[in-house]
Computed example of a mutant assay.
Amino acid sequence: MPPPRTRGTALRQRLADLRGPEVPAKALDARALAALAANPGCDRRALLDGAGVDKTALASALGSPSAFGQSQFALTRGNAFEAKVKADGGAELLRLVREKLDPRAEPPTAAHVPDLAAYGPEGRTARTALALREATEAAKTDGTWTLLDHPMLALDVAGSPAFLEPDAVVVHPAGGWTVVEIKSFPMLDGSADPAKVGAAARQAAVYVLALEAVAARLDPAPPVHHRVLLVCPKDFSNQPTASAVDVRKQRAVTRRQLDRLTRIEDIADTLPEGTCFSPELSADRLTEAVEAVPATYAPECLAACELAFHCRARSRAAGAVTTLGRPARAELGGLATVEDVLAAARGEAGDPDDPAVAALRRAARLRSEALTGADALGAPCP
């Protein structure tokens, strides 16, 4: 077996070959990682994300462009609000952290904001780890608050490192670490849209996992708080307000799903020689390459993956029941296509002792009786 360094070099070269000559890798962010963990059975997304393939460009080259992503207006509004929250050395942000998460700590009079600049994601990751260690030591020595603005964290995903950039990480005077998520959707009367809060919690849980990996390398390991701070505009103003969100459940689910992901090199080893996902290739060659990697499509992919329109079209063409949604797929057991479902309902196929088959035949019988009764009611009187 080759040494780890050799294996790592070979894997990086293989992933570069999959992207195409001189095609830069697209960074895997926490939003994509949370979506990947929500669909761990999709080898296609795992491989493309792990290889750093630009799925937006790939979808356009396949002829199925996606409108997935934030609008430019939303990005601009979010950046402006984040700058307001972090103004004056993060004084308002630290006030909210103390108020919501650490009220017994001394009020932050002046926070330390270290410079995290370095060359490349690996350099920034190392600089962030050093800053976290120094901030933890300073907190224990003189109770200093530290604000890390856009630190860089690394998390192993299916054998490949994903570099993540949370909005902020705060080191408390007692030495604990807290993730801060800054969003531009409003909190109305102290509460926000549950769906948006849930998405933010799943994203923050990814950052918590990455922070735990950094903390594990320190002795003693500082506590990584599972209550993160969600900062949003208050009501219809641009004034920041915050809420503490417990992400222990999301963290456990994400950790379990990431552990189930097939390792990227195992997926890559199953591909034909010369497989490449460069958007410069013809649509036919790209389609052949994409179809060589198994996908697990579900309607939820439309809100989370740039290739969703392509995968939906192929799923519909194959008559896959996953097009109907995961709950329907789970209820149908071993019946994988709509044709199989209809044949089982008509009594032409399937094991009668299979609960799914028995339920389909009963449903078909009830439907036939209902239609027969409707026809009789509509018949003219003799």
Rank of each mutant, 00 (worst) to 15 (best):
M1I: 07
T9C: 12
R12Y: 07
A25Y: 00
L28M: 11
A30P: 11
A35R: 02
N39H: 13
C42R: 10
D49A: 13
A51I: 10
V53S: 11
D54L: 05
D54V: 01
D54C: 09
L58K: 04
L58E: 08
A59E: 05
S64M: 05
N79K: 06
P103V: 00
T109A: 00
D115Q: 06
D115E: 05
D115W: 04
L116R: 01
A118M: 06
E122P: 01
A126V: 04
T128L: 09
A129E: 14
A129P: 02
A131Y: 05
A135P: 03
E137L: 13
A138F: 03
A139Y: 01
T141V: 05
T146Y: 01
D149H: 04
P151G: 05
P151C: 10
L153H: 07
A154T: 13
E165Q: 15
E165W: 09
H172M: 11
I182Q: 07
K183G: 12
K183W: 01
D193S: 14
D193K: 15
P194T: 14
G198M: 12
A200P: 07
A200F: 10
Y207R: 03
E212I: 00
V214Q: 01
R217K: 13
V224Q: 02
H225C: 12
L229F: 11
D235Q: 07
F236C: 11
R248Q: 08
T254A: 14
R255Y: 05
R256C: 09
L261G: 02
A268R: 03
T270R: 15
G274H: 06
G274Q: 03
G274T: 03
T275D: 00
T287N: 12
V290E: 07
P299W: 07
E306L: 13
F309C: 05
R312K: 12
A313S: 13
S315C: 12
A318R: 02
G319H: 04
R329C: 10
A330C: 03
E331M: 06
L335A: 11
E339G: 14
D340Y: 09
L342M: 14
D354K: 04
V357L: 04
A358Q: 09
A359R: 08
A370E: 12
T372Y: 10
D375W: 03
G378D: 05
